[in-house]
């Protein structure tokens, strides 16, 4: 990742223009060739520095209104197996193990999306049954204060 990569990612983070040759337009504002833009993006994608290239969808606008952060307190020695089971659920978009903190012991996090809160609760119940870990909480999002992409400064 060099300075040109950084400039390119910064330039593109708010989205490509919706024109026939979007990468040519990005290239011209950077003063480089369209081919160079495409090659750099492909390399950053191959290196995993770009996770994916594509559209971000507003879930709420397509009827996927409920967003539940489901957390379980999974014994450390069971984390591997449990994480794989949870990741296998289609309704789960993200699944992470996180550090425990002070008065927070729930270390397994899964984001569950659904059309209703009830739908999310049903998924959380199925997961809980599948993993056999019952120390669980569901934290629905009551308000979205902010949602932007991860940005480069």
């Amino acid at each position: 990742m060099d300075e040109a990569d950084r400039k390119l990612l910064k330039m593109m983070q708010d989205g490509i223009p919706l024109v026939k040759r979007p990468f040519a337009e990005v290239a011209s504002s950077l003063g480089i060739a369209e081919d160079e833009v495409l090659q750099r993006l492909q390399r950053l994608l191959d290196e995993g520095k770009i996770r994916r290239f594509g559209a971000s969808i507003a879930h709420r606008k397509i009827g996927v209104i409920a967003n539940a952060m489901c957390v379980w307190n999974v014994p450390d020695e069971r984390v591997d197996g449990v994480g794989d089971i949870i990741a296998g659920f289609d309704e789960v978009t993200h699944c992470y193990v996180r550090s425990r903190a002070r008065d927070w012991g729930h270390n397994m996090f899964a984001m569950v999306h659904g059309r209703t809160k009830q739908e999310c609760e049903e998924v959380a119940d199925r997961i809980t049954k599948a993993i056999g870990v019952h120390d669980r909480k569901i934290l629905f999002s009551e308000r979205e204060f902010k949602k932007t992409g991860v940005r480069i400064e």
């Binding site: 990742m1 990612l9 593109m12 983070q13 708010d14 989205g15 490509i16 919706l18 024109v19 026939k20 993006l41 950053l44 994608l45 290196e47 995993g48 520095k49 770009i50 996770r51 994916r52 290239f53 594509g54 559209a55 971000s56 969808i57 507003a58 606008k61 397509i62 992409g149 991860v150 480069i152």
Partner: peptide, 27 residues
């Protein structure tokens, strides 16, 4: 394709078409 994507963007269904970066891999 362009006009449909533009409409989906105007309706705020598509937020943006952009690279999603991996912050850790970028240091």
């Amino acid at each position: 394709v362009i006009s449909r994507i533009q409409k989906l963007k105007d309706a705020n269904i598509i937020r943006r078409i952009a690279p999603v970066i991996d912050v850790k891999k970028l240091g």
